[in-house]
Amino acid sequence: TLLCFSPLQQSELNSFLWTIKRDPPSYFFGTIHVPYTRVWDFIPENSKKAFQHSHIVYFELDLTDPYTISALTSCQLLPQGENLQDVLPRDIYRRLKRHLEYVKLMMPSWMTPDQRGKGLYADYLFNAIAGNWERKRPVWVMLMVNSLTEVDIKSRGVPVLDLYLAQEAERLRKQTGAVEKVEEQCHPLNGLNFSQVPNFINATLPPHERITAQEIDTYFRQELIYKRNERMGRRVKDLLEEYPDKSFFFAFGAGHFMGNNTVIDVLRREGYEVEHTPSGQPIN
């Protein structure tokens, strides 16, 4: 609903900016993993100013670093010699294969004229996203399938918000960095054993109280996010102490600032004053 109307003024915009009170101030900014063009007009001016004025920009991962991308790719693969066929139930594997054949067939009709003009022809795009799927771990194939929709394909080629900010930071010659290593983000996900999840639901709950997969997903995410928040918070604290005269802009997924045990809570426990910065409030 947020994107259905054009906001009349800054004060109506949702703010995902927090100020870490010190001199100079530093900032937390909650990003979202969607094409930046979908949300850019709804980001308050003071958030953009905080980004422009900061000396150093930090992300979860350094998405502009080729090593990061190759490490992510290899982390998603099954152990040597294993194929998806070996680890998935036969009927699920067949459905998946059929679904991917359908997507490949539909891809040309999903692409925009602009994409075709840029030479992003369908086969190339399909292979870029889904190539090598039979070597990937189930959790990554699941994430891949979720992003193989017409809407997602149409916005291919537009960087997601966090990548856009990383590219802007480079363009503005800002110092950049990351608070996590690929392994720290990837291994917890690889540790999720999806084959056990349905058993866990069926075994422990009477039929009238079946928990949806969504809630289980949330439970796991909390498990993963809490641990990561602790680690990210500690690294933020170390950076602030190491560079007391620099203004940092920490752009992390918005989920790290929501709910309990957030990165903000970690910093506050360490004695830092962190306050939410509503849209319309000027940046010092």
Rank of each mutant, 00 (worst) to 15 (best):
P188A: 04
R90L: 08
T31D: 07
N261Q: 14
S15H: 08
P89S: 08
Q281W: 07
S15T: 10
E223T: 13
N190Q: 08
I225A: 10
G191A: 13
W133N: 11
K227P: 03
E12R: 00
T277K: 02
V182I: 05
F250K: 12
Q185I: 01
Y219P: 01
L148T: 02
R137H: 15
F51N: 07
N260Q: 14
K97E: 15
F220R: 09
D238R: 10
T176N: 07
R156C: 08
P198T: 01
R231L: 10
V141R: 14
N14P: 01
D86G: 11
G271R: 11
T149G: 14
F194R: 00
T262K: 09
K136C: 05
N83V: 00
V263C: 11
S155K: 02
Q175R: 14
W110R: 02
P198M: 04
V274I: 08
H256E: 12
K97M: 10
C4R: 13
E82C: 06
I56A: 11
T73E: 02
Y219L: 14
S155P: 00
S15L: 06
E168G: 00
E230H: 12
L148K: 06
V236T: 07
E184H: 10
A71K: 04
Q80N: 12
D265G: 02
Q196P: 00
M111S: 02
T37E: 10
E209A: 03
E150G: 00
R269I: 07
Q80S: 10
V263K: 04
E183S: 11
S279Q: 06
F200C: 00
R235W: 02
D65E: 07
A251W: 06
A254N: 07
S279E: 07
D238G: 09
R269A: 09
E60N: 11
L239A: 12
R137T: 04
L78T: 05
L63A: 03
K227N: 15
C186R: 00
V266E: 14
E209V: 01
P159D: 13
W110C: 01
W40Q: 09
G117H: 05
F28V: 01
I69W: 00
F257M: 13
L148C: 02
I225D: 04
Y124I: 12
A254H: 04
F29P: 01
N46T: 05
E134R: 11
R231K: 15
G81M: 05
W133T: 11
A122G: 03
P44L: 05
P79I: 11
V87N: 09
G157C: 09
R228F: 08
E270G: 08
R231I: 06
E275L: 03
T31W: 04
Q10R: 08
L172N: 09
R98V: 06
E45I: 03
P282E: 06
R22C: 09
V103A: 13
L163V: 13
S279K: 05
Q9Y: 07
N284L: 04
A130G: 09
L189W: 13
H276S: 03
S279I: 05
D86W: 02
P24A: 07
V179Y: 02
E215T: 02
S11Q: 14
G233A: 11
T31S: 12
K154S: 06
F29G: 02
L8I: 05
C75A: 11
F252Y: 12
H208G: 15
A128M: 05
M144V: 04
E275D: 04
L61S: 03
D62L: 03
E241Q: 14
S70E: 12
Q185F: 00
I43L: 08
G119T: 00
N83T: 03
